[in-house]
Design a binder for these strands. Structure first.
Lengths: 239, 239
DNA sequence: CGCAGTTTTGATAAAGCTCAAGATCTGTGG
DNA sequence: CCACAGATCTTGAGCTTTATCAAAACTGCG
């Protein structure tokens, strides 16, 4: 290894090294694996609040949920947006360490924690949903740390389009504030970046409806979608 | 809730609301719960590389490991530092999505994935180690997004001191580059911030030995350590 | 129709990145 | 034990990105 004992000086990935990490998308979406009660939530309503006892795991049947926390100064972090099929609400301790709020009309399966582990299928899905959300966070951290506002928003839109399975046509359930608090940008910068995309013909917008137009954005999506579990085999098709 | 339908305008946490999220430290450290082969690693050596088959889970017996990935431009992200007792290496798919490297002389237990789930105790510990690392990342994201260089480094040092159980006296196994790539700072800024801390009498340093001196840093540590699982019960003692 | 909340746009300032150059440290071999 | 080389750390100067503050336009819902 020529990059120093501690490998710190790695300004550019050299060929022959491991390809850069990208989130490989799961090949299938989980069905409704959790058993439990169905509950409906109106836009803006709280699924669970910070510090409440954590008794349930949730799976989204329809709609969108955001999980958030506030830092010491009252600044908000959006930890994730949870779309149809996705599972959220696992906690390490007896109480919730975040709050979960419905962004639109939302239907959830509410599954008691005990029940979630009794079923082998569900337990397996629970484990892999946690790993997926970890990997999603890891990828987001990458963009938060090194990405420009431009890259962050492009990543966000393409990722969302993929997860919603909506080829290039997204109905955003979240505000510019939400997106900002998710990507580490101010809502103003998010708005300005939307405008910049629109100006350059990359997207068209109508309020919260977004259509991804140009390949400059779609191509990034292709790159995200291209890698399956065989990343070790294929040559890294970068740049 | 008066902060708008989508709860976006929350400039400051008002009293009566949920206290800001902080990572509650686990009340006990895991023992050596994983069974498997012990392996030793020299400083700078690779435990596993990106894209390699993921066959094992690891637990640190002694030493320190960092897990990293590179982004498309070759910039490095340090996802975590793994200290004595800590478990790492769980993957969602068949291959590793990060690389793991020993930072110093390090001894690990290498546990085959199959074996890890056979033992109920180990499976439980595996689950909670994954949740803990998720919570750790969530806290770090908070600092990456909203923290100044000052706050990031203070958080880093105090957290490390706590995890090493070394009251105010740390031997850093990682470089300034590593710290920067973990906190989203350039190594220069990390260095400058160390200097600023030293100048203000908050710490003293001798190469990679750090001693936390002033309460301005220790107090933040106390705050981190103060909250157990009863966060819902006690009044928030903030500021 | 009006209001609260959201989005957009503009102007300004500051934090931290980048580039650059020394200084210091660590391990190695003579 | 010393000298050397590679790596790491420190410090400086300038610049860019984006946060912040401010205000106007828009939107949706009651």
């Amino acid at each position: 290894m020529s990059a120093g004992l501690h490998g710190a000086v790695v300004p550019v990935a050299r060929s022959g090294e491991a390809p850069p990490a990208r989130l490989s998308r799961p090949d299938r979406r989980p069905g409704l694996v959790l058993n439990g009660t169905r509950r409906s939530f109106t836009p803006g309503s709280t699924v669970y609040a910070h510090s409440e006892p954590a008794e349930f795991i949730y799976q989204v049947v329809s709609g969108t949920v955001r999980t958030i926390t506030l830092n010491r100064e009252g600044r908000r972090i959006v930890h994730g947006f949870h779309l149809t099929g996705e599972i959220f609400g696992h906690e390490r301790e007896k109480h919730h360490h975040s709050s979960a709020e419905a962004l639109e009309r939302t239907c959830l399966i509410q599954c008691p924690k005990s029940l979630a582990n009794s079923n082998a299928d569900a337990a397996e899905e629970l484990w892999s949903s946690l790993l997926l959300s970890r990997d999603r966070t890891a990828e987001r951290v990458m963009y938060i740390i090194y990405g420009s506002a431009f890259e962050k928003l492009a990543y966000f839109l393409v990722d969302l389009a993929w997860r919603k399975d909506s080829s290039g046509r997204i109905d955003l359930p979240m505000s510019r504030y939400d997106i900002g608090d998710y990507l580490g940008l101010s809502s103003e910068t998010v708005s300005r970046t939307f405008t910049a995309f629109r100006t350059r013909g990359l997207i068209s917008t109508n309020a919260r409806q977004v259509r991804l137009l140009s390949d400059d954005i779609q191509r990034m999506g292709a790159r995200l979608r291209a890698d399956e579990d065989d990343a070790a085999v294929r040559p890294p098709t970068l740049t």
